[in-house]
Simulated assay, not measured.
Amino acid sequence: MFLLLACLPALAVVVALVLCVRGIERAVDGRVAGAAAMVRQGSVSARAAKPHIVPRSAWAGVGEASAAVRNPPPPRYDDKVIAVFVHHTDSPNDYDCAEAPRIIRYLAAGQTGARDWDDIGYNFLVDRCGTIYEGRAGGVGRPVTGAHTFGFNHRTAGIAALGTFTAGVPVPRAMTHAIAALAAWKLGLAGVDPRGTARLTSSNSLSRYPAGTTATLPALAAHGDAYMTTCPGAALKALLPQIRQKAAHLQGRT
């Protein structure tokens, strides 16, 4: 009897410890489940890993690059990027991927020459092998104001697919995967779900919306969603739902 009574305090301590551990486990499980639910609801910034991006110096400072491309003016910045526009460059598809820097220089020369732009308009370009190139100067991780989508260059980034992707043209899988990875990372910096929408204000009445109009557009949009154009081509536009889903997955969203 005395032995049993002597053991009771120790037994109580053991029971308390077990209950405490179980309580901690339940609390931790609850926090994990709660965090997962918040990610699903978009309450937590779900960021994706930064993909490899070939720096601008790989194409802009060599060969026949124009003076404007070699020495662009100081970049302009927005507060953040909340939407991405996908383009195609309307150039040949049968290039060797080693030629991509030369093709980008050619595109930049046309935009800074004939169009008299201050720099290449696209923030990024992706070739058929899935290589991502830095386009417009200013820093890939910063919200550089581009010149890619008339009326909607603010708070957005432009990703151009090197090639022409009209109806019936195959779009390389490596290219769409790279676009998804890039969009996932860039939009993730602001906690934006690639499957969602963004409210953007038009700055030019020559877009689909009069200047000053606030439009609700896909967070990962086609150029033609904001401007009267068939860009990025029917074949690439048809794949945007898959690209959005892939980008969301890369952000850890379900």
Score class of each variant (00 low, 15 high):
M1E: 05
L3P: 03
L4A: 13
L5E: 11
A6M: 14
C7S: 07
L8C: 04
P9D: 06
P9T: 09
A12C: 02
V13C: 06
L17T: 06
V18C: 09
C20W: 13
R22F: 07
G23D: 07
I24W: 15
E25F: 14
V28P: 01
V28R: 14
R31I: 14
A33M: 09
A35T: 15
A36S: 02
V44I: 15
V44P: 00
A46Y: 10
A46H: 09
K50G: 02
K50L: 02
P51G: 10
P51V: 07
H52V: 02
I53C: 04
P55H: 05
P55G: 03
A60W: 05
V62I: 12
V62E: 09
A65W: 05
A67I: 09
V69A: 05
V69C: 00
R70F: 03
P75Y: 01
D78K: 02
D79H: 01
V81L: 00
I82G: 07
V84A: 06
F85W: 11
V86S: 06
H87M: 12
H88C: 07
T89N: 01
T89H: 09
S91C: 08
S91I: 13
S91P: 00
D94S: 13
Y95W: 06
C97L: 10
I103T: 04
I104S: 07
R105E: 08
Y106H: 11
L107V: 09
A108K: 03
Q111S: 11
Q111L: 05
G113E: 00
A114L: 14
A114M: 13
R115K: 15
D118N: 14
I120E: 03
Y122S: 06
Y122Q: 08
F124V: 00
V126Q: 01
G130W: 07
T131Y: 06
A137K: 14
G139F: 00
G139K: 00
G141R: 03
R142N: 13
R142I: 08
G151R: 01
F152L: 08
N153W: 09
R155V: 08
A157H: 06
G158R: 01
G158D: 11
I159W: 11
L162E: 11
G163P: 02
V169M: 04
V169Y: 02
P170Y: 04
A174Y: 04
H177C: 04
A178L: 12
A180C: 13
A180N: 13
A183Q: 03
A183Y: 11
A183S: 15
A184V: 10
A184W: 08
W185G: 06
W185E: 05
K186G: 03
K186V: 15
G188V: 14
L189P: 03
A190D: 01
G191D: 11
P194R: 03
R195E: 00
G196D: 00
G196A: 05
A198I: 10
R199V: 09
L200K: 02
S202D: 09
S203R: 15
S205K: 03
L206I: 06
S207P: 04
R208W: 08
G212T: 07
G212V: 07
T213F: 12
T214S: 14
L217V: 15
A219Q: 10
A221T: 00
A221L: 06
A222V: 00
G224V: 02
D225P: 07
Y227Q: 02
M228A: 15
T229R: 01
C231I: 14
C231G: 03
G233M: 00
P241I: 12
R244D: 01
K246M: 11
K246A: 14
A247Y: 08
Q251K: 07
G252T: 03
G252P: 04
T254E: 10
T254G: 14
